[in-house]
Design a protein around this nucleic acid. Structure first.
Lengths: 327, 327
DNA sequence: CATTTATAAGGAATCGATTCCATAACTAAC
DNA sequence: GTTAGTTATGGAATCGATTCCTTATAAATG
């Protein structure tokens, strides 16, 4: 079924059919009825493809995510969709599975698909990627990472960690351990570590090497990291982990050793995962409100789409420390 | 930048440029080089849009999900993407937010976008939807729900629940409570309840009315449901909840009452959520392997895409009961 | 009554690709 | 030396819509 077919059946020109569908221009009531009738009968659905070839608007937004099965990503998507769907935009989803090269591939691919805009959730960002982004020339918003001259929503990983450490210090802790991840992950690995170190330094506390451990992203490595701390010297009185899962691993270790939380070992995570509310004791964590970040990113994109110059807007998304039983 | 522009700059016809890009037909090496050079210089990316208008293939698969921020959905997406991405397909994602009317809207929308195929994860399915699916005429796979004459991947909610109850009975339990959800959710609400009741009946156990409670999808309602059981009579010796969160609510109630799990109250959930492994005691649950379901659904779709007649294939996805500390 | 102006509808160009068809030159075969 | 096959290229149609332009009638204005 094409517009030509409809035109023929309704005995009008395809121009008229187009007018009826889009409600533009003048069409006699009688013809309009006839056309609508035929459309109804045939179940005709206009080809968005052909339409957007002519109008140069696809109503599709490309989204590039590092992973899909994480609370971070799905919350972000949730926020993005909340804003985009009511405006009639669909989401073309691409997932890099953390492979850096794919980010550039997908940028090309999305451009080739003539998407109206792109939202990129990047875990790291290097020079080639920066280059590609600069030559994009279509509405673009980056989330999770800042980039000069590009609109973005950043989560203040540095400050959040800083504040979390400060909270511990204000509560009297002087020995604060840290379980991080690889610095290749700029936000979670690098910036959070920096926030931790800066806070200790500012408050005149010693940074002990064995109190800084590194895990990957699962609970087992949080357990291991805590064990390492204990074996390489004394356990601190408090531990901050850069993800909730790592924190839960630390909790498991503490429980296994018969240490009471928080009196003998205070523990905090980051990310406000669902688990953090169900674990016992309930885990203190930082909520980066990823949903809001998605909403914000999509909103900025919509502004760009409507022609406003918001290229260099960088919004810092709010975080909240959720103080719960574990500290 | 269009193919015409490239043709002009390379001083060849657009036909030749097309041949170079697609590696079809005959092109002199010299010309090929010249064209590639120009493409490189200009950063030209062919319009998939124009391409698919002509070729009638978009390499896009539409996916309709009830929600995005659930482990079920993101696991499913994970599986789908694993299969589709390597084959060069992109995913156009639409989210109904549980609004039934949107399923039909999105079906139309996706068809209008000329997607090559559609995967629908439906929570319920009524006559209008059935009608729409029948007139689709493009490769289509349904997951989570079976439908006559349509390819699909189903999770055997009935049998899984049946088996879970059977397991309890084999372990000596004679008083088994059930926390369900609204029957409007056919799989989680209706089928699981049926499985529970059938198992009790088959084993000659009494179905006590107050042992069958209904919650929504959060832990609080699981807590509430368990409290109701206790207040309306005696607590059973075991409780099966249709989601892990409900089960966790039940656990919270039990802990609050000083009941030891599993000796005084055995508890099992369903869904194999991440939390289930971290909660204490670790929750016994049913893993429906949603990732596999996604893989399976995408694979069936690929078969249809390659022209095979797999319209009526319905694959039952395997489930596994994960026996852990809570029973 | 002549001349705008609003209403109404269609013809044809256009968007950016692919692909069928025609043509030409060169090589190989009988 | 004609015929057939291979290599090489471009012209033009096509996909399914939108939109500019033209034309025709009817109503309104001076």
């Amino acid at each position: 079924m094409t517009i030509n077919e409809i035109a023929k059946r309704a005995n009008v020109s395809r121009t008229t059919v187009s007018r009826v569908i889009n409600g533009t221009g003048y069409v006699r009531d009688e013809l309009k009825k006839r056309v609508l009738q035929v459309i109804e009968e045939t179940g005709y659905i206009p080809s968005e493809n052909a339409k957007s070839l002519r109008t140069k608007k696809t109503n599709i937004i490309g989204v590039i995510l590092p992973k899909i099965s994480t609370e971070t990503s799905s919350r972000l998507m949730n926020g993005i969709d909340q804003v985009l769907a009511p405006k009639g935009y669909q989401i073309l989803l691409t997932i890099t599975n953390q492979e850096p090269a794919k980010e550039i591939d997908f940028l090309h691919l999305l451009k080739g698909r003539n998407v109206d805009g792109i939202i990129l959730s990047a875990t790291h960002i290097d020079e080639p990627l920066r280059e590609e982004i600069k030559k994009l020339k279509i509405p673009f918003v980056m989330v999770g990472q800042a980039m000069e001259g590009t609109a973005g929503v950043v989560l203040d990983d540095f400050q959040a960690t800083y504040d979390l450490v400060k909270l511990f210090i204000e509560r009297g802790h002087k020995e604060i351990g840290f379980i991080g991840v690889t610095e290749e992950d700029r936000a979670v690995g690098y910036l959070r570590k920096l926030g931790y170190m800066k806070a200790l330094k500012d408050k005149g506390l010693e940074i002990k090497h064995h109190w800084m451990q590194e895990g990957n992203f699962d609970a087992a490595s949080g357990f291991q990291a805590t064990e390492n701390m204990a074996e390489e010297g004394e356990l601190p009185s408090a531990i901050i982990a850069v993800t909730d899962r790592l924190a839960i691993g630390a909790m498991q270790y503490a429980k296994g050793q018969g240490l009471s939380i928080p009196s003998q070992l205070a523990i905090a995570g980051m990310g406000a995962s669902e688990i953090s509310t169900y674990i016992e004791p309930q885990l203190t964590t930082v909520d980066f409100s990823q949903v809001d970040a998605g909403v914000e990113a999509a909103s900025i994109l919509l502004e760009q789409l409507s022609g406003q110059k918001t290229d260099t807007v960088t919004v810092k998304n709010n975080y909240r420390i959720l103080v719960r039983e574990s500290i």
